[in-house]
């Protein structure tokens, strides 16, 4: 089975709203796209369409949070992490306010809309903010968990959500934990530490390379901040080679976070980075974009080959 992440998010949010009357949802005239409209239909009195005014929406959520509400803010994260950033930094993170940021259409998943609507720096932006928790689900079950976690956690949470359909990875009822990653495929030659879509591309790559006798471990690092340092250092020690893979600029995102852990931990593993190579993207069918920018299984394989060449 495979489900559209945005659809799962909107549905889960509406369900959670049934149980918790403090949840309020805001959108900036994109609720049909972000799927916050599913909540809006179920709980119209707690849904606020703020119009095309992202900065106002985010700062309004700050105020709502101080009255005991749990606001979920929704828009394309290309705008949330830029236009919304002032209030995210100066009000929400500074004050450790209980605001949840639903960053829709992460990476290049807004495919045809082009670079203006692609979010390829958002992890770097969000994880540099004190008090922020950064989560990137990789399938329906983990999307359900991050949404529920956001409600339960006191403080700002950024959810990196895709427009796209991701295959199911986790069984219903899987236990997730903030600050933990999951080994989703065992391997001994190299570890690919990925998030979101790239977890699936890494699994694909691992299957292809298995036929060539290369054993690839895949880690789903769904919790980017806080990050699972223990697991990263364990993988570095056991496989001696790390490939970071993300639908994000190679600078400052998951790769940056993993590198910090490797540096602090004094790990000797060789490391490579699969991601957008510090460039702007373009319009096109999603699959062709992923291929062109090296974000498909072949891109991950290229990263693995590079790191293994250095490992020898």
């Amino acid at each position: 089975m495979a489900k559209a992440i945005r659809e799962v998010y909107g549905t889960v949010l509406a369900e959670l709203g049934e149980k918790n009357s403090d949840i309020v949802v805001l959108d900036a005239d994109l609720s049909g796209s972000t799927k916050s409209a599913i909540f809006g239909k179920a709980h119209p009195e707690r849904f606020f369409n703020m119009g095309i005014a992202e900065a106002n929406m985010v700062a309004t959520a700050s105020g709502l949070a101080t009255t005991g509400k749990i606001p979920f803010v929704n828009t394309f994260t290309a705008f949330l992490s830029t236009l919304g950033l002032l209030a995210i930094r100066a009000q929400i993170c500074y004050g450790n306010l209980n605001v949840k940021l639903g960053g829709a259409y992460c990476g290049t998943s807004a495919a045809f809309d082009g670079s203006s609507h692609h979010a390829t720096e958002d992890i770097a932006i969000m994880r540099s903010l004190p008090n922020m928790t950064v989560l990137a689900p990789s399938d329906a079950e983990s999307t359900r968990w991050v949404t529920q976690f956001a409600v339960e956690h006191q403080g700002p949470v950024y959810l990196r959500l895709s427009r796209d359909v991701y295959p199911d990875l986790y069984a219903p009822g899987t236990k997730f934990e903030c600050g933990r990653g999951a080994i989703v495929r065992e391997g001994s030659d190299v570890t690919v530490i990925a998030c979101g879509l790239l977890v699936h591309k890494a699994i694909e790559a691992a299957e292809i390379l298995a036929e060539r006798g290369i054993s690839v471990r895949v880690v789903d690092m769904y919790s980017i901040k806080p990050i699972d340092s223990e697991l990263i250092l364990k993988c570095a020690q056991e496989t001696g080679a790390i490939v970071c893979a993300e639908e994000h600029n190679i600078y400052g995102g998951l790769g940056g976070a993993v590198s910090e852990v490797l540096a602090w931990g004094g790990a000797s593993a060789v490391t490579e980075f699969v991601g957008i190579q510090d460039t702007f993207t373009e319009s096109g069918p999603y699959s062709q974009l992923l291929k062109k920018y090296g974000l498909d299984a072949q891109g991950v394989i290229a990263g693995i080959e590079k790191v293994l060449a250095r490992k020898k």
Binding site: N56, S62, G63, A65, L86, A87
Partner: peptide, 19 residues
Amino acid sequence: MSTGPLGIGLSAAQGMAMG
């Protein structure tokens, strides 16, 4: 509410009033 950067305080006050 934390303030200093101008232009977003009224939005926060609005959120309080809504809540």
